[in-house]
Simulated scan of single mutants.
Amino acid sequence: MKCKILTPAITVFNEDGSIDYEGNRKVIDFLIDNGVDGIIPLGSSGEFPDISYEDRKEFLELYIKEVNKRVEIIAGTSSMNYDEVVELSNFAIECGANGVMIIPPYYFAISQDQAFRYYDRLANDISGDIYIYNYPARSGFDIEPQTLAKLAKKHKNIKGMKDSTTSIEHTKSCIYAVKEHRNDFEVYSGFDNHFVPNVMAGGSGCIAAISNILPELWAEWIKVTREGNLDEITRIQVEIDDLMQLYGIDSNFSLLYKKLMKERGLDIESTTLFPFDLIDDEKYEKALKIFKRHVR
Rank of each mutant, 00 (worst) to 15 (best):
P41E: 11
N14W: 00
N90Q: 09
Q237H: 05
P41V: 04
K57T: 05
E58R: 13
D281A: 10
I143M: 15
T171C: 13
W221N: 08
Y82H: 12
G228W: 09
V12K: 00
P41T: 07
D142G: 10
C95T: 12
I28C: 06
E169P: 01
F91C: 00
R296Q: 11
S164C: 14
N90R: 09
A9R: 03
G202P: 01
T165C: 15
S204V: 01
P105N: 07
K223I: 07
D250P: 00
K283I: 01
I210R: 01
I64T: 09
G23P: 07
D20F: 04
I210Q: 10
N134R: 03
N98E: 12
G76W: 08
V295G: 09
K26R: 15
G38N: 09
E263F: 03
G203D: 12
E239W: 07
E282D: 15
M200T: 05
G160D: 05
C3D: 03
E263V: 10
N212Y: 06
L260A: 06
F48G: 07
G23Q: 10
D142P: 00
I39L: 14
D250T: 14
D242P: 02
N81T: 14
D280C: 06
T166C: 07
A152W: 02
F185S: 03
Y176E: 14
P197S: 12
S45L: 13
L31H: 13
N34H: 14
K262C: 11
F276R: 10
E263A: 09
A115S: 12
A97D: 08
K69S: 13
Y188C: 08
N134C: 05
D267G: 05
A92P: 04
C174A: 13
K179N: 12
S79I: 03
